[in-house]
Each structure stands twice: as C-alpha cells, then as structure tokens.
C-alpha cells in the first residue's frame, strides 16, 4: 500500500522550485509531485507554468499526454495488469475479466470503497514469466486466478 501526503500547494511549490533548473524539468517535476501526493492537482498547473515560463495549456498538454500521470487521487492500491501480447498468450485476458468481475469495476476504474484502482499496462518486461502485474509498484508474475485473489485479498478486496 502506498501512502501519500495530502495535497498541499506550498510543499508542491517547493518540489517544483527544487527541480526548476534541470534541463527539460517538466517530466521530473510531474513525477516528483505524483510520488509525493499520488496525483497532480489542477492547482499545480499554473504554478508549474509560471515557474517554468510555459503556458498553462502546455503544462496541461504534457500532463494529459502521458498515461502515468494522474489528475485525481488514486485508490489506496493500484493494480496494473499487463494486457500485452506475451501475457495474452498465457491467459491474461481471462485474468483481466476475473479481476474486473471480482472488483466490479472496468479497467481504469476504482472500487466504490476506494481501495483498489485497476489499470491496464502494456508490457512490464516480465514476458518470460507471463502473465504479469504490478501492485503498488511491486512486480508479480506467473499469475493465475488463485495468485491474483491472494493479491487482491492483501489489498483488502
């Protein structure tokens, strides 16, 4: 389980300022904010734009371009299930259906109790031990329904 600090514009400003002089600082800044708060609040956009001398639209454009960046707080646990070809060849689609049914959400969704967000990922480089997934940044592979159930139980589901 990942625990994040509650959103706070002042500490966000400090994080942004710390990285502002890196060449191409925007991605490292967004990563750092998400690492701290679990997502990037709208409130950060004008601040980043101002400090990096960009338009707010440019910042928003980058934020929304990349699949990794979240604009809303994530659930307590994030399960990324690989849905790319090698995992498909080892039954990941059945596993994906099982996960969605058990959590009663579609991919991209969060359970009603806010415990788990289910996301697709397209290859984790664990194709030799497919099917694979990542739970809160930890890799797990050679998954089957039983192993997945154990993981979800640990995440409180």
């Amino acid at each position: 389980m990942s625990s994040y600090a509650p959103w706070d514009i002042e500490s966000a400003r400090a994080i942004i300022a710390e990285k502002q002089s890196m060449p191409g600082a925007l991605l490292p800044i967004l990563h750092a904010l998400q690492e701290e708060f679990g997502y990037i609040d709208r409130e950060a956009e004008p601040v980043i734009a101002d400090i990096l001398n960009l338009s707010r639209a440019e910042v928003h454009g980058v934020l929304t371009f990349y699949h990794d960046f979240r604009q809303k707080p994530a659930a307590r646990h994030v399960l990324k299930l690989c849905r790319a070809e090698s995992c498909q060849a080892r039954g990941s689609e059945a596993l994906a259906a099982h996960a969605a049914a058990r959590l009663r959400i579609a991919f991209g969704g969060t359970t009603a109790d806010g415990s788990v967000t289910l996301e697709p990922v397209y290859c984790l480089g664990l194709c030799s031990v497919s099917p694979a997934a990542m739970l809160d940044g930890r890799v797990v592979a050679r998954l089957d329904e039983r192993k997945l159930d154990t993981l979800l139980a640990k995440a409180g589901r």
């Binding site: 790319a84 070809e85 397209y122 480089g125 194709c127």
Partner: peptide
Amino acid sequence: DEGDSGTFADR
C-alpha cells in the same frame, strides 16, 4: 524505453 511486448533484454 523498451516498450515492445515480448522483450526484456534491455531491462
């Protein structure tokens, strides 16, 4: 960036 599914040599 090794995005290709089925690859892991870079990793």
